Amino acid sequence: MPDAADRTDDQALPSEGALFHERVLAGPGFWIAAVAVGGALGLILVPLNLTAAVAVSAVSVLVLLAVVFQYSPVLEVDEGVFRLSRARIDVDLLGEPVVLRDEEWSLAIGQDFEPLAHHCVRGWTRSGLRVEVLDDEDPTTAWIASTRRPEDLALALRTAQRQRRREAR
Rank of each mutant, 00 (worst) to 15 (best):
D3L: 15
A5L: 03
D6M: 05
R7S: 04
R7C: 00
P14Y: 01
P14M: 07
P14R: 04
S15A: 14
S15N: 06
G17H: 10
A18K: 03
A18P: 01
L19M: 05
H21T: 03
E22Q: 09
R23H: 07
R23Q: 11
V24E: 00
L25Y: 14
L25W: 14
A26H: 11
A26L: 09
A26W: 09
P28S: 13
W31I: 11
W31D: 12
W31Q: 10
I32E: 00
A33H: 10
V37D: 01
G39I: 09
L43A: 10
I44E: 03
I44H: 00
I44K: 00
L45D: 01
V46D: 05
P47F: 02
L48T: 04
L50F: 13
T51C: 07
V54W: 09
A55T: 12
V56A: 10
S57F: 06
A58P: 07
A58Q: 12
V59N: 08
V59Q: 12
V59F: 15
S60M: 10
V63W: 15
L65R: 14
L65F: 14
A66T: 12
A66S: 15
V67P: 10
V67M: 15
V68I: 14
F69W: 15
Y71G: 13
S72R: 11
V74A: 04
L75F: 06
E76A: 10
E76M: 07
V77S: 01
V77D: 00
D78K: 02
D78M: 00
E79M: 00
G80A: 02
R83H: 03
R86D: 09
R86P: 00
A87N: 10
A87E: 13
R88K: 05
R88M: 10
I89D: 03
D92C: 05
L94M: 09
E96P: 03
V98L: 11
V99C: 06
V99E: 09
L100E: 11
L100H: 07
R101V: 09
R101H: 08
R101W: 01
D102K: 02
E103C: 00
W105K: 01
S106E: 11
S106L: 08
S106K: 11
S106C: 03
A108R: 07
I109W: 00
G110W: 02
Q111V: 04
Q111L: 05
E114N: 06
E114W: 05
P115Q: 06
H119Y: 12
R122S: 14
W124D: 03
W124A: 08
W124E: 09
R126W: 02
S127E: 09
G128M: 02
D135A: 13
D136N: 13
D136G: 10
D136C: 12
D138A: 14
D138F: 12
T140N: 11
T140C: 11
T140I: 13
A142E: 07
A145P: 06
A145N: 08
S146N: 06
S146V: 06
T147W: 05
R149A: 15
E151Y: 05
D152K: 08
L153Q: 08
A154V: 04
L155V: 13
L157D: 08
A160Y: 02
Q161T: 08
R162A: 10
Q163C: 00
R164Y: 00
R165N: 02
R166Y: 04
E167Q: 08
